[in-house]
Design a protein around this nucleic acid. Structure first.
Lengths: 145, 145
DNA sequence: CAAATAAATATTGTATACAATATAATTGTA
DNA sequence: TACAATTATATTGTATACAATATTTATTTG
């Protein structure tokens, strides 16, 4: 075993993880562009579509995003008209995100996004491989909490 | 099967991929800080440590990075003194990155980085899981090429 | 050989990310 | 009930990323 073995890029797990993640996001880009969404905005909208109403803090926790990322993100979604931001009357600090009518219309259209991703084979793995991969990634994420 | 099932965040593979990748990089940060390296600079140095000399284009291909990312990246590594940038005499367009003495000294110290990552369980998976995960990620990356 | 193409970088513009710091509102507590 | 700690956001600073565009230097081709 060579002294520098552990320093070789090919022996890292982090690197294919980093590359695969960027690659998938890059493939989402041209598809999401048609809906005027970036990848980060898309995953935020996915949560909002599911919840209809959610506190900014909870959205941040769900997406594992820092306040420094969430703040400008929701401002953009508001500017696009997909959400409105209300204040919680019982706690003035809390901001509540609410899906607008426009945002809800977008949901209908966005149903095509997963279809397009499939058709274009943006994640080119068999269903079985994809399931194993997803489980392992989730195991990894939940391990250190 | 509900109509919006495919739009739920929990049913996406891209999301745990994105979260896991960011999380690992975040855990590298405090460790790499001691060596005055960011994650991207670290993976670039791994390639340079292995090659000693490499063309900028080849480094970009190896790291799957755009010229817009590579350009400022190597400038910073040069500023830190870890590399020098030479011109290929046979082709004036080509820039060749060369490891400096300082860069080589850093390599010796950096051997501790993988050790620290291990000790702190920054990737908290069994060896078997990690191997399966790495293989699947590489399969995914190589699938669309 | 001159003109068109291609290849290697650099730059600009936009959008993330996260750490650190600041601020305002709330809660716990001596 | 003052006051300290906590919570929810926002802002600032630094570093990526990638698309699009520009520039310089080969290379190919008519």
């Amino acid at each position: 075993m060579e002294k520098y073995e552990a320093l070789k890029l090919d022996n890292q797990l982090c690197f294919p993880l980093y590359v695969a993640s960027k690659e998938v996001i890059r493939r989402y880009k041209p598809i999401l562009e048609k809906y005027d969404l970036t990848y980060t905005q898309y995953i935020a909208m996915m949560v909002i579509w599911e919840e209809n109403e959610i506190k900014v803090t909870d959205l941040g926790k769900r997406l594992y995003l820092d306040t420094g990322t969430i703040s400008p993100l929701i401002r953009k979604l508001k500017d696009k008209g997909y959400i409105e931001i209300l204040r919680d009357s019982t706690d003035e600090r809390v901001q509540v995100i609410k899906l607008t009518e426009t945002g809800n219309k977008l949901k209908e259209k966005a149903i095509d996004v997963p279809k397009e991703m499939m058709q274009q084979k943006c994640i080119n793995l068999s269903m079985e491989d994809a399931i194993v991969l997803k489980k392992l990634l989730e195991k990894m994420i939940n391990a250190n909490e």
